[in-house]
């Protein structure tokens, strides 16, 4: 079996981290690795989980031809499942979802995420992003969220984000009494990260072949890396088999 692609690795790492009490796993737009993770979990460790796919379907059944990882989003063929995500009503029940996933343009030391863009300091935009979708709301209320950063360099992992789409800073979250559980993990092509005791993001593991110095060079702040930092446990043959044969049948993550 060929080695896992980075998106396959992301999917498997996410699926491994879901908690027993996670009942509703919601995936936003254009995050096929998160869709795959949710589907993979529902087929293996989380048979009772509902998977809500943003603007698409939820309730992915037995995954025989899982609609959650179709290569192109919102294909009407994906509109099958136990029910639909009603965009105008989804925010009426903030006790769900339990879990959500974000990407971002910039992530900072405190776990704050920016998807707005980079302002020019004069009321305009040096670099305009797509907009922040429902990041503010989901990060405020869901039990926990995962951040998947497709690139890891000093422009994306910064000391301080230019703007905050999702407030990760645990001290600020506590001060403002935000009800949700905040960041669970951050995944990048280099490793796995989580919020440490002081509220800064720390390295939890490095992916195979990545050295601590690679992460230091690619990170815009002095990131804490323990001397005995573990290597990310690689996907097992069994995990990859389920992912490829039953979840990502169209090879979207390859």
């Amino acid at each position: 079996m060929p080695d896992a692609s980075i998106n396959e690795l992301f999917a498997i790492l996410l699926a491994r981290d879901f908690r027993p009490e996670d009942r509703t796993i919601m995936v936003g737009a254009n995050m096929p690795m998160a869709r795959a993770a949710a589907t993979l979990a529902s087929l293996t460790t989380h048979p009772d989980a509902r998977v809500i796919v943003g603007l698409g379907v939820h309730g992915l059944g037995d995954g025989g031809d899982p609609p959650g990882v179709y290569p192109f989003l919102f294909d009407p063929r994906s509109m099958v499942g136990e029910s639909l995500m009603w965009q105008g009503r989804i925010f009426d029940d903030v006790s769900r979802p339990d879990v959500f996933f974000f990407g971002g343009l910039q992530l900072d030391r405190r776990g704050n995420l920016n998807l707005f863009g980079i302002p020019d300091g004069d009321g305009g935009w040096k670099m305009r992003g797509p907009g922040s979708l429902a990041l503010a709301t989901m990060s405020t209320t869901c039990r926990g969220y995962y951040i998947v950063m497709p690139s890891h360099d000093p422009r994306t992992f910064v000391e301080k984000v230019a703007l905050i789409s999702a407030l990760g800073d645990v001290e600020e979250r506590a001060r403002l009494k935000l009800p949700g559980g905040g960041i669970r993990l951050v995944l990048s092509p280099l490793g796995v990260f989580a919020v440490g005791d002081g509220g800064d993001l720390e390295v939890r593991s490095l992916h195979a072949g990545v050295r601590a110095d690679d992460v230091r060079a690619a990170t815009g702040w002095e990131i804490a890396i323990p001397d005995d930092v573990p290597t990310t446990e690689p996907p097992t043959a069994a995990e990859l088999a389920v992912l490829r044969e039953r979840v990502d049948v169209h090879g979207t993550l390859a």
């Binding site: 707005f116 429902a134 503010a136 709301t137 989901m138 990060s139 405020t140 209320t141 703007l163 905050i164 789409s165 999702a166 407030l167 600020e172 979250r173 403002l176 935000l178 009800p179």
Partner: peptide
């Protein structure tokens, strides 16, 4: 009223 967005850059933007 809405809660999501408190503590973010929305009110500034």
């Amino acid at each position: 009223p809405w809660r999501g967005g408190v503590g973010t850059s929305y009110p500034q933007l």
